[in-house]
């Protein structure tokens, strides 16, 4: 049987026009042999969750620089639960202050990677946790 590829959805929730980070991550994960679906800017939680379901991904990577993570991330997690998606790794990156990390971990964001994180670290994290 063919070895299963890890499939990742990279999304930018909310009103946030900065997608360089998301694109770099998308490319980095592709170079690491993953199949990466990039969904573009200004996605609603509903769009992200529906995309993740249709694409049947193993990982959702949320990139956010707007500061609205405390509002948008819980909504995404709740929607995933509502849709019965429970076998999925949710990670995040961008400008997320240290003091918010614990709260986000608690709601189910498995890993948070802020600027400066080597891509290798993210790849390892995904490979270990999927």
């Amino acid at each position: 049987m063919v070895k299963n590829k890890i499939k990742v959805l990279i999304a930018k929730p909310g009103l946030d026009g900065h997608d360089r980070g998301a694109k770099v991550i998308a490319r980095g994960l592709k170079e690491a042999g993953m199949e990466v679906v990039y969904t573009g800017l200004r996605q609603t939680p509903a769009q992200i969750v529906r995309g993740a379901i249709q694409e049947d991904v193993d990982v959702i990577g949320l990139s956010i620089l707007s500061g609205a993570h405390e509002h948008l991330f819980p909504e995404i997690i709740e929607l995933l639960q509502k849709e019965g998606v429970d076998n999925l790794l949710v990670i995040a990156g961008g400008i997320i202050p240290e003091e918010d990390h614990e709260k986000l971990h608690d709601i189910g964001i498995a890993g948070i990677f802020t600027p400066g994180t080597p891509i290798r670290e993210i790849v390892d994290f995904i490979e270990k946790n999927v």
Partner: peptide, 9 residues
């Protein structure tokens, strides 16, 4: 790499 970037969405 065997990876792919799927950007059509």
């Amino acid at each position: 790499s065997g990876g792919a970037l799927l950007g059509d969405r």
